[in-house]
């Protein structure tokens, strides 16, 4: 990110959510973005995920300047090169677990059978193969987040973005989810950027970016065995 600003303007007010944020995350890193509520973490994640547009600055992901993309190109970029994991899981309750995981692949245009096979592989990897036919709404929080992770990975994205992935889970389930994401990061060499309050995620991360009042106030790079 290069000098990224995000200013929200309304009638009679203006909020600077991000103020000249710059940092780099390299391929294969497991990066945690930490900061208190209102510091601009989620805004940052939305901008990296091409879900929102910066007021100023450049965001380059996997060699592509997101600020230069049209809306359609952003849709395609999100689908093919990014995976999302949300705090509230954001699964489609009307679909089954398997269908939720298949969805990004189907959107990409992958055939139904191919998408199904890949989704089942991922569900096996996250330990939920047996619940493929269940409706997403009937799962526990931890199970939903595992499905969400499987969904984020199905298109083998270069970058996985997670917004408070453990924010809605108990500590034991949080630990399992962090472990799972760490393993996937190592196995697939995919870059993970996680926005979190959770210090255990920060411990597992190879890079920690600290943010306060819309500015980066510290970057910590760690070595992990």
């Amino acid at each position: 990110m290069e000098d990224v600003w995000k200013v929200y303007r309304g009638e009679g007010f203006e909020v600077e959510a991000l103020r000249g944020v710059s940092f780099q995350v390299y391929e294969g890193e497991f990066c945690a973005v930490m900061g208190p509520s209102g510091s601009g973490k989620s805004t940052l994640l939305n901008l990296i995920g091409a879900l929102d547009t910066p007021t100023r600055g450049r965001i380059i992901v996997d060699g592509v300047d997101l600020t230069q993309l049209s809306e359609g190109e952003k849709d395609e970029f999100r689908n093919r090169r990014m995976g999302f994991v949300f705090q509230f899981f954001n699964l489609l309750n009307e679909l089954t677990v398997l269908e939720n995981v298949m969805l990004p692949a189907l959107i990409r245009g992958v055939g139904f059978e191919e998408a199904r096979a890949e989704a089942l592989n991922l569900l096996r990897a996250v330990g939920l193969e047996g619940k493929a036919g269940h409706l997403a709404a009937r799962l526990s929080g931890g199970e939903m987040q595992r499905v969400s992770i499987a969904r984020a990975l199905i298109n083998r994205p270069a970058l996985v973005l997670a917004d408070e992935p453990t924010g809605n889970l108990d500590s034991q389930t949080s630990a399992e989810i962090i472990k799972l994401m760490g393993e996937l990061n190592k196995r697939n060499r995919q870059t993970f950027i996680l926005v979190t309050h959770d210090p255990t995620i920060a411990q597992a991360a190879t890079k920690v970016i600290k943010i306060l009042d819309g500015r980066v106030v510290g970057v910590e790079v760690k070595k992990h065995g």
Partner: peptide, 16 residues
Amino acid sequence: TRDIGVLRALGVSRRG
């Protein structure tokens, strides 16, 4: 609304 946002995040276009 939320599901529409999720679908857009997953790459479904406005046309979709």
